[in-house]
Amino acid sequence: MSELLIISVETLVEALRPYADLLLPLIFLGFFFLSTLAIIFSDRKYIKKSYVSGFLVVLLLFQTIMPLYITPFINWHKFSSERPAESAGYEVHIVDESGNEIQLDRKATLAFNGVASIPSEQMVTNNSNETNQEIAQWILKRTSEYRAEVERGEPTRGAVPSDVWNLPHRLYRFPAHSVGAWTADELSGFSEFIGIRIYYVQTETSSDGSQIVSQSEELVLEIYPEKSPDNSTEVA
C-alpha cells in the first residue's frame, strides 16, 4: 500500500515535471496566500487548527515520501546514501602566472557567509567554451578579490571556528558553514591568479573507511581566460 502510494507520488511528480516553471512559483505563492488568509482570519473558529494541521501534514509528506525540495518546503536529508569505498569527484585549482596552483577556497566564490560548488562536471562535459570562459573569469575575479582581503587580514566571509580565537572581532558576521580557509601565509608564494584547472579525483578508502588508501588526480580541463579568447583546453 505504502509502496503504491510512493509510486503514485513519483509518477505524479514525473508527469508534472515539464510544468515545473509554472508549478513551483504557484506552490510558493499558494502557500503564502493560504498563510496570509490564516493569519488575517486567525481569530475565527477552526482557522488556526485547520491551518496548522494542513501545514504539518504537508511538511510530513515532504520529510518522508515526497522526493522533492520545493520552497518553502524543505528537508534535512543529509548523508542518507551509503558511501562507497571508491568515489570520484572534481576539484578546482587556481593557477598563478608561474604555473603554481592552489585548491579553490570555496568561500571565495560567493559574497556571503557560505560556500557554493562550482559546476565542474558541467564545465567538463559541456561544449560551450563561452560559458566555461565566463565561469572561469568569474572564479578568477572572485578569488583575486578574496585573496586580497585574506592578505589584508579582513576576508569578507563568515568567521570560521579558528577565527573565534584568532579574529574574535569578526564574529559580527554569521559563522560560515565550513572550516577550511586560505591563509595569508599560504597565499604569499603565489603571483597573480590567471587560470583554473579542474581535476577528476578518484579516491579509494580502506575497508573500515578510516583511511584513504589511494587517490589519483587527473587534469581534465584548464582555462586561462586572460591569455586569449579561446584557450579552454580539454586535457583528457
Partner: peptide, 10 residues
C-alpha cells in the same frame, strides 16, 4: 519533524 525526516530518509 524535520529531524525525524532526516532520520527517516537514512
Amino acid at each position: 519533524l524535520i529531524y525525524f525526516g532526516s532520520g527517516f530518509d537514512k
